[in-house]
Each structure stands twice: as structure tokens, then as C-alpha cells.
Amino acid sequence: MIFLQLFYEFFKIGLFSIGGGLATLPFLYRLAQNHPQWLTPQNIADMIAISESTPGPIGINMATYAGFQAAGPLGGLIATLGEVAPSIIIMCIIGRFLSQFDKNQFVKDAFYGLRAVVIGLIIYAGSKVFLVALFAERTLRYKEAVLFIILFALAMKFRKIHPLIWIVLAAILGILLQLPS
């Protein structure tokens, strides 16, 4: 039963991704590995762009999109509900028993190590996106690589510019340069 499976997989993602939307990425790659018929690494790269350029939390947008690719509109809904279910349960428990949760010494200590791991996991997920976007069968695509360097330099200089602007600009350049090269 694909809907039960989807709910279960996204429940796990909601339970283990700590630190916001991008933290769900490594789990989505795992999902693509284990269920190639549900979504591909390329789906995930496109999904990040779509999630960043539409309203709503990125993690939720990605869950809806991944669920949709796997099993249509109902799949999108079920995956999203699966991802938010742990939040509701955990928040109700914390709200009932531990209102000072974030000031707890154990929590602070755990986060010292946890934060570093989360960065490592995002780098892992990011490397998969780079592989899809900048490489074709492990050889560098030159047009894309040059475009990346230029856009990255611009983005570091003009940090205030909304992600949507870079995505639209890159889409136009993609058509003009006739990517993927």
C-alpha cells in the first residue's frame, strides 16, 4: 500500500530532520535511492528550485512535491501529513511537560555536536545536487560551471537579493545559453 508507505517514510523524515527545510534533503536522497520509482535526484534538484520560489516552508513544499511524484495529488497530501505528524506529537508533549526545553543543558550540549553533523549532511545532499547540475556522467559541464561561478560571486556580493530572483535569472540564462550543455 503506497500511501501507508509514503506516510511512514515521511514520518521518519519529520522525526529525524532537525534544523529546518534543507535538513530534510539527505533523507530525500536516501528515499530516492531506496525507491527510484518514486523520485530521482533530478526531481530533487528541481524540487528545491520550486520550493524556494513558492510560498510556504521549504520542507513542506518538498514533501508535497516528492509525494506527488510518487503517487499523485493524494500522495502529496499524505507525505506532507506524515512529515508534520511528529512535530504535532512532539510539540504537544513539550508544551505539556517541558516549557523550558530550549534552555535545558542537555539540549544545549546535544546541539553542540548535532549542528556540526547537520552541516555535514547538507553538504552531502548538496554534493548530489551539484552532481546533477554541473556534471554529465562525471565530466564537468563547462557552461554550467562558469555560470555557477558567476552567479555565486554575484550572490555573495548581493546577499539581500531574494532566492526567487536568482532562480528566474538562471532560468532565462539557461534558455539563452541552451543548457544543459
Binding site: 528545491i48 545536487v129 535569472l169 538562471a170 532560468a171 544543459p180 550543455s181
Partner: peptide, 11 residues
Amino acid sequence: GGIRVAVCVLI
């Protein structure tokens, strides 16, 4: 093709 490059930048 272009958008994926922008996604790399954002990441």
C-alpha cells in the same frame, strides 16, 4: 538546466 545551477548557488 539554468535553474539547477541557481539551486547549487543557493545551497
